[in-house]
């Protein structure tokens, strides 16, 4: 036996072992690096180049000075906030009830969340087009009931955009919230009730704080997803509600728009990064536990 009691040998083998185990995650990390991280960095790089390929901040200046781009950013924030609030107002009570149902019934009702979650956004957007169109079911009903004489223009406005997006976002809130609510120990609630807390106090002082991890994870997911949402606003907004995603797509369709498109992309990235940092620090969001 050597003086160092095999320390060098053990250290070397421990390193090899660690490398082998890290190697298992390497292919996945490589794919994500190549197809997500590098492209985002590429956008970052292109955003500070002019048409000739020289360094410039001009793209950001255009962003800040052109009224159209500013109004897009305002619209994006307004719609995202509205969608988030409406989704929470609908999603929280719904999930609250689902989490208290007996498991067999809850499984069936959860299909009502899982099914839209797994259905293509395009199918869902199309469904709202069909419902809200001039010859759609809603207009047919309104005319039949005599509420209006002629079909109303229900599409191509903020309301239609928000409705379509909320339909997409509610499952994003319900899934993490359901997992959190199911894990709440009802012993706490019985304890609160036995200590004299009424139903309202028990809910706000005990249940609601315990459901916060799921609520914050879901709210964060909704807001971030809404910011970059593209298909639903483009179709249901019909050019009258332009969000940043659509603006980027339009800008990229013209060669000259590369610079503005990438600058808008960087703006979206910055907003996402700030929100992510806020969620992880303040809301203690744990990504590994999100669905």
């Amino acid at each position: 036996m050597t003086d160092d009691r095999n320390a060098a040998v053990h250290a070397r083998e421990a390193r090899h072992e660690r490398a082998r185990m890290l190697g298992l995650a390497l292919p996945a990390l490589a794919v994500i690096g190549a197809a997500v991280v590098v492209p985002i960095l590429w956008v970052l790089y292109l955003s500070v180049l002019d048409v000739q390929g020289h360094f410039t901040l001009g793209n950001y200046l255009v962003l800040a000075t052109e009224g159209a781009n500013l109004s897009v950013i305002v619209t994006t924030l307004k719609v995202s906030l509205l969608v988030t609030v409406v989704s929470v107002v609908i999603g929280y009570p719904l999930t609250y009830l689902l989490a208290q149902l007996p498991p067999s019934l809850a499984t069936i009702c959860m299909l009502g969340i899982l099914l839209p979650y797994m259905t293509s956004v395009l199918v869902r957007t199309y469904a709202w087009m069909v419902l809200l169109g001039r010859r759609g079911i809603v207009n047919t009903m309104l005319v039949w009931l005599g509420i209006t004489d002629a079909p109303l223009q229900l599409m191509f406005n903020t309301t239609a955009t928000v409705i379509g997006m909320v339909h997409v976002m509610v499952p994003l809130l319900a899934l993490p919230l359901y997992a959190t609510m199911r894990a709440i120990d009802h012993g706490f609630l019985r304890a609160a009730a036995s200590l004299g807390a009424g139903p309202v106090a028990t809910f706000w002082r005990v249940y609601f704080p315990l459901s916060l991890p799921g609520l914050s994870a879901g709210t964060f997911l909704i807001f971030v997803t809404s910011l970059g949402f593209f298909i639903t606003p483009t179709v249901l907004g019909g050019g009258r509600v332009t969000m940043i995603g659509q603006q980027i797509a339009t800008a990229i369709a013209t060669y000259d728009g590369f610079g503005v498109a990438t600058a808008l992309g960087v703006g979206l990235l910055a907003a996402t990064a700030i929100l992510l940092g806020f969620a992880m620090r303040v809301l203690r969001l744990d990504l590994m536990r999100a669905p």
Partner: peptide, 10 residues
Amino acid sequence: MMPAVLIGIG
């Protein structure tokens, strides 16, 4: 976590 639009243009 990243907006799909951003990954798309990238």
